[in-house]
């Protein structure tokens, strides 16, 4: 099957690559660009470990084809980390031990960041609901909810 030349922005850098149509976005990021912070957990859209930002919205990297991203903007955990934009959330995860093996963490952070971007202090139930598509086998979720809630409180305090 014909490879397609695509041009997209990944973490602020322009990338031009030839991809097979069947290559998913997460495989493209990991295998072609070496951005291994996005993880493959189920490849059928349930575990959420592959979640990345496409044009600013968090999407499943396994349910998006790389070829579809031609002309679009992708941001991964590597980009979100280096920009410093989620540093407070990462620090909260670290100090609260809201990760154990860390495999779900990059996607969990991006998903939580999307909720926090909405502002305010969401209830624990609302945080749980927003993260309900991101599987974590290690923590039991409680620490993750604590970390997200703590950041929401600090951010709300800082803006009020």
């Amino acid at each position: 099957m014909t490879a397609h030349e695509i041009t997209l922005t990944v973490n602020g850098e322009e990338v031009r690559e030839a991809v097979e149509p069947r290559t998913t976005l997460v495989d493209f990021l990991r295998d072609t660009l070496g951005l291994t912070g996005s993880h493959v957990g189920c490849e059928h859209g349930v575990c959420g470990a592959c979640s990345v930002r496409l044009d600013g919205a968090v999407v499943r990297g396994c349910l998006t084809l790389a070829v579809q991203c031609d002309g679009h903007k992708v941001e991964t955990i590597e980009g979100a980390s280096d920009s410093g934009a989620i540093a407070d959330l990462q620090e909260a995860f670290r100090t609260r031990n809201a990760l154990q093996c860390g495999y779900c963490t990059p996607a969990m952070l991006l998903t939580a960041a999307e909720l926090l971007a909405g502002g305010g202090v969401p209830s624990r139930a609302a945080i749980r609901e927003h993260l309900s598509g991101n599987y974590c086998r290690c923590t039991g979720y409680h620490a993750i909810i604590d970390a997200v809630e703590a950041v929401a409180r600090v951010r709300a305090g800082a803006t009020s």
């Binding site: 979640s51 496409l54 968090v58 499943r60 349910l63 991101n134």
Partner: peptide, 9 residues
């Protein structure tokens, strides 16, 4: 329907 990341796409 699904989860936020599913509904985004």
């Amino acid at each position: 329907i699904g989860h936020p990341a599913i509904r985004n796409r």
